[in-house]
Amino acid sequence: MRSIGERSTDPALLVLTSLAEGPKHGYAITVDVEEIAGIRLGPGTLYGALSRLEDKGLIEALAAEDRRHPYRLTGAGSAALAEHLHTLERVARAGLDRLRIAAASA
């Protein structure tokens, strides 16, 4: 499975999560990521992530609208995102459980 990124705030992961909803162009991705994660991706960070994801075959560009290409997830992108999110979910659940146990025994 191709890697996305190590952190839950990794721009590539945020972009893939945004595109899970459907195709979007750069500005729409920026607005969406700000809504879901509270992080404003700068243009350099956003297009750095888009170029890497496109290079790995995890997203693809659709026909240009005006000066902008919308992007969408590929099959490989959906699979990589799902696997990464499941890993994060397992880690988050284990972490929360341990915090709860520690709080109860304190």
Binding site: H25, Y27, P43, Y47, S51, R68
Partner: peptide, 14 residues
């Protein structure tokens, strides 16, 4: 050449 126009467009919008 690949992303320049799109990045310009994003700069115009933000």
């Amino acid at each position: 050449r690949r992303y320049g126009q799109e990045m310009c467009s994003l700069l115009d919008e933000t």
